[in-house]
Amino acid sequence: MGGGPVHEALAALELVDHHCHGVVTGALDRTAFESLLTEGDVRPGSGVSSFDTPVGIAVRRHCAPVLDLDRHAPADVYLARRAELGPDEVNRRFLAAARANVLCVDTGFAPQRVTAPAELAVAAGAVAHEVVRLETVAESVAARGVEPDGYADAFRAAVLDAVRRPGVVAVKSVAAYRTGFGLDPGRPSAAEVTTAARGWSARGGRLDDPVLVRELLWTAVDLGLPLQLHTGFGDNDIRLHRADPALLTDWLHAVAGAIPVLLLHCWPYQRQAGYLAAVFENVYLDVGLTLHHVGPVRARAVLAEALEIAPFRKLLYSSDAYGLAEFYGLGALAFRRGLGDLLQERVDADELGLPDALRMARWAGADNARRVYRLSDGH
């Protein structure tokens, strides 16, 4: 990490990670590890390795020392040491290294066994809250065989039950994956929802009907809780051009001021997200998993673009760590270094006062999230 008082303040700051996931608890061979290291496909024998990517290089550089290895340890050496320590110790070390004392955990994506919020809290020495994924709730309702004309009421009842669980602080949608954001911004009628539910019931599968996704988003508005929205890149299931948050503009006009809307990840649309945060009072953003995928060297550039015009009160920190505990440690490192470099450079150029820079660092690292999610200090 660079020098200067801003870097020192960020190094000492306990973060609020406002969007993250569980980590695996079982042993990982090389193929399994590499599959979690990338948003793409892993094809053993192809000659293409996830270790030969910016995030793979960053793991070998910055995560190896956490496991008592030399910087730039070879991949096989890294994985052997990881196996020697065992999953519990590896997870504990990286969660501790992140030094986030509050975790807001999306529990809706679990294609394999990962830690629950309470387990993460113990490993990190943190307080963990839950973020309810709305598509998961809708699909559980459909799986029970609800009649199409009862779908809307059943979905709303199930969502209310979910958000009343202790520790729930927000809801999330992955509409970017399912339909993209080029949706009619209006609330669908009851007849439209029934017709769409009938079609979904007949064909089965995951929720990808535009009318039902609109109903889901408007249900989130009615709840009054903060709504997290995946935007920008993800795995190859997404159609990136449909995940541009600027496509949400008409919907954001329709729901202006109703609930906080948090745009997650955003790359390569961090400038569009920054614009939306600048012009809509209730819109916030992070750059999430972008930071560990680009690595600490490029983190500053991504944050600089996100903050070109966005209010400093609108940027939050998240790791979006999933599967690999390394992403908790690497995401926090990249955020601290990138934001520290950005703010310290402006202080050194006398474009920003040091007290302002220190306040902005605290806002982005913790205070903005506490305000949006109505968390008490440290909780």
Rank of each mutant, 00 (worst) to 15 (best):
A258I: 09
C20H: 07
L354H: 13
I259K: 08
D350E: 14
L160N: 15
G22V: 02
Q344I: 02
D235I: 03
G204C: 05
H292K: 03
A116K: 09
G323C: 09
T25R: 15
A116M: 15
L247S: 04
L291R: 08
A100C: 09
T194R: 15
L324Y: 09
L134M: 11
F312C: 11
D184E: 14
Q228W: 01
P65L: 10
E308H: 08
L252T: 04
G340E: 05
P166W: 06
Y317M: 01
R300C: 05
D235H: 04
L316S: 03
W267T: 07
H62Y: 11
T179L: 04
A11C: 01
R370F: 07
L358Y: 04
G145L: 03
L85F: 03
A152G: 12
L324W: 08
F94D: 00
Q228S: 13
A364T: 08
D70C: 13
K172F: 03
F109Q: 08
T194K: 10
E84D: 11
N101H: 15
G365E: 01
Q228A: 11
D356N: 10
R164H: 13
R374H: 12
V279D: 00
L207M: 15
H18M: 08
S201T: 15
R165F: 02
P311L: 11
T115P: 00
G182L: 10
D320F: 03
Y317C: 00
L69A: 06
